[in-house]
Computed example of a mutant assay.
Amino acid sequence: MFRFGIQGYRPRWRNGRDSIVTAHGARLAGLGGLTLRHVWLVWDLDDDEWFADAPVLLDFGAEQVEIDHQKFDDLSITWNTIDPHQAIEDPGFRLAWRAEPLPPLTELPGRTLDHVELLEWTGGDMADGSVAVGLDLGQTWLVVYNALDENGLEHHPPGPSYRRHRLGP
């Protein structure tokens, strides 16, 4: 089964920081020092807006990490499985990949990733324990978080409602 008609994409849902560190910690830490080439989002062509239910692709050239949230605490991280140049074939939506389609994303390509952090939500609500992925890109950040059954993006350092876990040096 394809998720939203994205060819080759098979999410692997995990819950909790320990599970994510075990499966992806070393590889996420290994992104440090690489240059971000593109942030790809799925665009809803009919509504002319970001389709936040689909994965966020971070293209670092030799590595592409695909981040996807669903429910209150499911996080899927996959690697190099999606080609954003291929058509999305979902029968219910007209969708297409777009590089940096939102204004805050246009400043990110060309920035070097300092490090990655896994961020545990501690806001005292039903999302407690959900895990976001934070990327320190020097003078700016990109955080891909669980926006209650879809992906959300923040463009600033993680706030006090996150317990921060730096990966790598």
Rank of each mutant, 00 (worst) to 15 (best):
G123T: 05
R98N: 04
L118P: 00
V143T: 15
D59C: 07
E63D: 15
A99G: 10
L105I: 07
E89S: 13
Q64E: 11
D68E: 14
A87Y: 06
V56W: 06
W141L: 01
I82S: 06
E107G: 12
T106N: 08
P101Q: 09
V144I: 15
P55M: 03
P84C: 01
W121F: 14
T81F: 01
I88R: 10
D128Q: 04
D136S: 05
G134Q: 00
I77P: 02
A96Y: 09
K71H: 13
Q64K: 14
Q64S: 11
A132F: 01
E66S: 10
D59E: 10
L102C: 08
W121I: 04
I77T: 02
G124P: 07
H69M: 09
L142W: 02
F60A: 01
L137R: 05
A52P: 03
S76H: 06
G123V: 10
P103T: 14
H115C: 07
G61D: 11
I77Q: 03
D136Q: 07
V144T: 06
M126Q: 13
G134M: 00
V133R: 01
A62D: 14
W141S: 00
H69Q: 11
G129N: 02
A52F: 11
A99I: 08
E89A: 14
Q64A: 11
V143F: 02
G110W: 08
Q70T: 15
D114G: 13
A127H: 12
A132C: 05
D53M: 13
D136T: 00
L142A: 02
P104S: 10
I77V: 15
Q64I: 14
A96P: 11
F60M: 01
P55A: 05
P104C: 09
V131F: 04
W97V: 06
P101R: 11
W141E: 01
E100T: 13
G138K: 06
N80W: 03
D128I: 03
L75R: 04
H69R: 10
I67S: 02
R94Q: 15
S76A: 15
P104E: 09
L102S: 09
P104W: 06
D125Y: 04
T78L: 03
W79V: 02
H115Q: 07
V65S: 04
F93V: 04
L95Y: 07
L142R: 01
L118R: 00
D83C: 05
A99R: 12
L105N: 08
I77E: 03
L58S: 08
F72I: 12
G138E: 04
W79Y: 11
E107D: 14
L108S: 09
F93K: 13
W121R: 12
D53T: 13
A132V: 01
D73P: 04
Y145T: 08
A87C: 05
H69E: 09
R111K: 15
L58P: 04
Q86N: 12
T122R: 15
S76K: 05
G134L: 00
W121Y: 15
T112Q: 12
D73Y: 10
R111Q: 11
W141A: 01
T140F: 04
N80E: 07
I82E: 05
D125V: 03
